[in-house]
Amino acid sequence: MLEFISQPWPWYVAGPIIGLVVPVLLLIGNRQFGVSDNLRHMCAATLGNVEFLKYDWKAGKWNLTFALGTVVGGFIAYTLLHNPDPIAISQATKSDLAALGISDFSGLVPVEIFSWSGLGTLPGIIMIVVGGFLVGFGSRYAGGCTSGHAISGLANLQFPSLIAVLGFFAGGLIATYFILPILL
């Protein structure tokens, strides 16, 4: 059993489980699924010195606990359900990325960039630090991230979320086809 669930989960298993997070949070506590709110709560808890951050961040304790659970879940999957094989991405993606100079496909992320030594390089700084910054800035500006807009928002048939998701894709395509080729 453990061996079976240690294999990569196909989309038709993983997708529905992720989708169920939405009704489960509504049912157990009337909460709306959205991970990026935690970034705001963390800022409000530490540096609540601008208007947007002056609120009682403790109201978001449930969500911060959910995020902590996500870290723990990642750790459990990494330790108890570990799969030693490289990520089985398509050959086409592998060739494209190899052409950009990525050679190590063994981990969850390309370790040449996403490591402490990678952080000392220009691509590392841009992809980790600037990329992180844009994720934080963009998700709060858009009022949600993949969970808040692409999953909860679309599931509730919210037109603003559809526009946000189209924006996510526009940005992702620009980074993939125009920025990464220059950077790597």
Partner: peptide
């Protein structure tokens, strides 16, 4: 939605991770 979404998307593809 479209400006914030696009900025988020740039970050999503660079870091390969959303929150």
């Amino acid at each position: 939605y479209w400006i914030g979404g696009t900025i988020f998307g740039l970050g999503w593809a660079l870091t390969g991770a959303c929150p």
